[in-house]
Amino acid sequence: MSGTDLLVVRGLVAGYGAAPVLRAVDLTVPAGTIAAVVGANGAGKTTLLRALSGMIRPAAGQVLLAGEDLRGTPVEQLVRRGMAHVPEGRGVISELTVDENLRLGGLWRRDRADAGRALDEVYQLFEPLARRRRHLGHQLSGGERQMLALGRALVGRPRLLLLDEPSLGLAPRVVARTMALLRQLRDRTGLTVLLVEQNVRSALAVADQGVVMSLGRVVIAAPAVQLRDDVDLRHAYLGF
């Protein structure tokens, strides 16, 4: 099976300062699937993403992306390995225009022609962005920022997309649309997604795999359907 596992995390320990937030996290995400990491506040979900993309240096453990060890890879190189991280709060650069934000996502690519094609595809995917090309980031609505953040990640044609709380602060309708889009991308382009969510229901509705974290550990990783439908599991780990 490991041949098709895009992301493999073994014994990952990381944190800020002395006390680790993550204590030995193990996780496997097969290629072309969506994994949703859920859990209470402070469980270490965001820290997990930050450790995966190198924004904090893990104290121990191993991260393999398509079999390649990512240890020691600088943050700015990860995008070249096919990993895109949409951080908490989406990271839209409000001083830049929509177009500049999007182009930034593909600036690292050598293949300028394909970077241009990817940009066009994103504008087709997110119609409202095309209409607001020249607007500055801080003039956008929450939903438009969401599109911009996702679109900017997609311009780099990633294999693995790390998404931190995409539903935060958005209307349910917009959340539903975002989740549907992730499914569509998975089916159409084989994109692999690791999604961190507070909104457990909509996350598990879209995901193939559900990962429950608590106090810096993965307490259960199971097919999302099972987590959604098994009342006992839900009660035990998710509290609903």
């Binding site: 990271g91 930034l104 780099g156």
Partner: peptide, 22 residues
């Protein structure tokens, strides 16, 4: 492009690194 990178790096260094900006 280099001007865009420089502005991005100045405004949002962390996000810029995630987008591959040195």
């Amino acid at each position: 492009p280099v001007g865009l990178r420089m502005r991005a790096a100045a405004f949002a260094p962390e996000v810029s690194r995630l987008l591959g900006v040195n």
